[in-house]
Design a protein around this nucleic acid. Structure first.
Lengths: 187, 187
DNA sequence: GTATAATTTCAACAATTACTGAAAAGACTG
DNA sequence: CAGTCTTTTCAGTAATTGTTGAAATTATAC
């Protein structure tokens, strides 16, 4: 597996962004490679294309599998594992959102629920409990909404996104926070 | 500044989650402390409450300021800086979304635009370019939508969120991806 | 100006996270 | 089952990131 300069640029960018996204460089690069690859790749091809160690590839694939971001398939008369990223970028997006929610939001929501079972009623603790409740309310609103939206088919979701702030008209009562500039009904 | 056990639990949780959120423990703890504090705190109070070094506090505040997540104010006859988190959890949320977008999404969007100025038209590079275009389209759709929604006032945004998947009715044509279970018009 | 208070910088050190090579484990073939 | 191919594990090391104390800087007061 050799990569073209065009592919390299994309792969290296994902590697660099990896740290900002809370994944490591290797994983970012591998996912970029799989995403643009027109065919499934096996671990050896990935290792060679990126110039990393075979064991590093193995660990990265394990991590990507845990995130549900890759699929494994097999070719006839070849017992190696071949990996692909889902074709549909929307599906990838939904998976990312769901997994980040599970790992980064749920533990906090759960902690907050626990802290609010019998909230303190006096002093600074009472104030803290109030803030905790506000945070939990926001989290539940946003994650509940994500639940609903992830149940929409892509076409409806796209329509909803394109509608953007125009939703206020449908809702009737909404008022703009700031004047002007916001787009409506993007092409 | 001493913290109660109730406050400690929240602060420590944020510290632990910090690494998952791509910030460090100190910053997570400080933000938790400020968020639940009923009054502004100066660097010395933060240092003492969390048992960290004064210089660590200084660097963390710099980082939080860069994220626009804290405000500085002053008290009469006291020249120390006093820090607060915004009162409104929605405002914090909007800031987080905006900053993550700026740091984690925009650089990629910009790279993709560059790679698509004169896209290759043959071979695997052409396929790669197609995938890049799909990714950019998704990014622009989602970030454009975020722009619009962040212009809505909180009341409208809340209404929109509560509507959830019910939006399909307003849009008319949407079809459910999966049957059943999704909530509509959450309380 | 000098003295004092508050904050920031930064080099050294600590802790954590990432990567590798070698060895072990697993999977299939004949 | 022995032999071969493939994947995984893991201890050691490299690289990165986080934290500190001491010194430098900035701001204010006298």
């Amino acid at each position: 597996m050799k990569t073209t300069a065009y592919q390299q640029a994309f792969i290296l960018h994902f590697g660099e962004m990896g740290s900002r996204w809370g994944i490591n460089r290797t994983i970012g690069q591998i996912y970029a490679l799989l995403y643009i690859s027109p065919r499934p790749l096996n671990a050896e091809q990935i290792t060679e294309a990126l110039g990393i160690s075979r064991s590093n590839t193995s660990m990265a694939m394990k991590e990507l599998s845990a995130w549900q971001l890759v699929r494994v398939q097999h070719l006839p008369d070849d017992r190696r594992d071949y990996f692909t990223a889902p074709d549909d970028v929307w599906e990838i997006f939904r998976t990312l959102v769901a997994e980040r929610r599970r790992r980064e939001i749920e533990p906090t929501a759960s902690m907050l629920r626990g802290a609010l079972v019998s909230p303190p009623e006096q002093g600074d603790d009472a104030h803290a409990a109030k803030k905790l409740a506000e945070m939990l309310e926001l989290i539940e609103l946003v994650t509940g909404w994500l639940d609903d939206v992830s149940d929409l088919d892509q076409r409806t979701a796209t329509q909803l996104m394109k509608l953007g702030g125009g939703v206020q008209k449908l809702l009737g009562a909404g008022r703009r926070k700031k004047a002007g500039k916001a787009s409506k009904n993007r092409a």
